[in-house]
Design a protein around this nucleic acid. Structure first.
Lengths: 202, 202
DNA sequence: AGCTGCATGTAACCTGTTACATGATTAT
DNA sequence: ATAATCATGTAACAGGTTACATGCAGCT
C-alpha cells in the first residue's frame, strides 16, 4: 500500500468521515485531490481495511461515510514501526531563490515579500486551527494515547515551520538591503572593508 | 515548461555541467533522478535553451557538457517574476506522527529518535557543504548579484530547517516522557492537577 | 570477487494534477 | 445572477520512481 492509503487510514482511525471530508483533512499530512481520494477509498475497501455506509441527505447529494476496520487499524499500527522513506520538499520558490542573482534588487525584494505574505496567511490559518483545537474539551486528555496527540504536534510543526521560514525571508531581505548599502558605500570606503562587514553579518 | 526545466536552467546558469552532475546538484532545489534529467535535457536543447558539447574521456565514458544559452537565461530570468505554485511537503513521518497515539511509548520514542538521527546526518552533510563553500574564494563577492548568493541562502535554509526540526522532535520526546510521568504520578496527586501541569508545558 | 563512483540512456510503472461531468443549497 | 460549499465520480495527461541496460576505474 502507498502513503496516501496510510494517510487515509490515519484520518479514519481518528474519526469516520466521507471522501469529501478526507480530501480536506488530508492537506496537512499528505496532500491529495478528491480525484485521487475516491479511487483510493475503493481500493482500501476492497482490501477490507475500511467499511462504507450510505446516507441519504435532504437537499444534498448522498454521503458515504467510511470507517476503519480492525484489520485497517492493525495494518496502520504495524506500519508505524516500519522504515520511512526520506521526506521530499517541492518548492518552486527555492529554485527562484537559487537564481535570484539573475534579477535586480527590486524584483528580488518582491519575490521574497510575496513569500512572506503567503507564509503569513498560512500561519494565520494554522493559528486559527490551534485555537479551535484548544477550545475543544477533548484537549484536556492530551497525552500520547489520546487521539488528539498526533494532530496537535503536527499543527504545532506547521506553525513553527511557517514562523521559521518568515524569519529566513526577513534575513534575506536584510542581506539584500545590506548589499544596497555596500554599493552605496563602495565609493567611500572601498570594497574590501565592506565585504568583511557583510561577511560578519552573515 | 515545468519546474524541473527551470531547476536545470538555474544550475546551468551558475556553471556548465553534465547530466550526471545536474542530477546530483538538483537534490536541494528540485530533487530528480537521472532518468528524469536526461530526457529533460533533450527537450531543453530542442527549445534552444541550452547547448551541448561532447567530450571523450580516457578510461571513463564520454561526457556531455551542457551550457545555458542567452535565450535560456532570458527565459529563466523572466520566470523569476512569475507567480509561484504553493510548496508541497511529502513526508511519511508526518502521517506516522499523526497516528502515534495508536502505538506504545517505546515505539513512539523509537520513531522520533530515528528521525532525529536522520536529521542529524542531513545537518552534518549541509554543514560540510557550507564549510567547503565558505572556504572557496568566490564567497568574498557575496552580494545579490553574485552567482553564489542564491546557493548560499538555500544552504542556510536547509541547515535551519534541520536544526528546527530536531528541536521539534526533542519537544515531542519531552511530551512523551511527560506523559509517562503523568501516569506514574496519577496515583499520587490525581489526574486533574497533572493534566494542568502538562498543558502548562505545552 | 564485489562494491562504489563515473557516465548515459530507455521502458514500465505508479503517483498526482487538471479537466470533464452532475446537481442542489446558501450566501453575496 | 454568480460564486462558493457540499458531494461524488471518471478520463486524460503530466510528473516521478524503479528497474533494465552497459561499461570502465579504483578500492577493499
Amino acid at each position: 500500500m502507498n502513503n496516501l492509503g496510510y494517510a487515509i487510514l490515519s484520518i479514519l482511525a481518528r474519526h469516520s468521515c466521507s471522501g469529501y471530508d478526507l480530501a480536506n483533512h488530508l492537506e496537512f499530512i499528505w496532500p491529495a485531490k478528491h480525484s485521487q481520494v475516491y479511487p483510493a477509498l475503493k481500493k482500501l475497501e476492497a482490501e477490507n481495511l475500511l467499511t462504507c455506509e450510505h446516507f441519504e441527505q435532504l437537499g444534498k447529494p448522498d454521503k458515504k461515510i467510511y470507517s476503519i476496520t480492525l484489520k485497517g487499524q492493525e495494518k496502520l499500527t504495524e506500519w508505524l514501526s516500519a522504515n520511512s522513506s526520506t521526506p521530499v520538499i517541492r518548492d518552486e520558490f527555492l529554485i527562484k531563490i537559487y537564481s535570484i542573482w539573475l534579477t535586480d534588487q527590486k524584483k528580488a525584494e518582491n519575490l521574497v515579500q510575496d513569500r512572506i505574505d503567503y507564509l503569513s496567511q498560512e500561519l494565520q490559518k494554522h493559528l486559527e486551527q490551534t485555537v479551535i483545537f484548544e477550545m475543544s474539551s477533548e484537549q484536556k486528555e492530551l497525552n500520547i494515547s489520546s487521539k488528539n496527540f498526533g494532530k496537535y504536534i503536527v499543527i504545532k510543526r506547521a506553525i513553527k515551520l511557517n514562523e521559521d521560514e518568515i524569519g529566513w525571508c526577513r534575513w534575506i531581505l536584510n542581506l539584500i538591503s545590506q548589499t544596497n548599502n555596500k554599493q552605496f558605500l563602495l565609493g567611500v570606503a572601498g570594497a574590501k572593508i565592506i565585504n568583511q562587514f557583510i561577511l560578519g553579518i552573515i
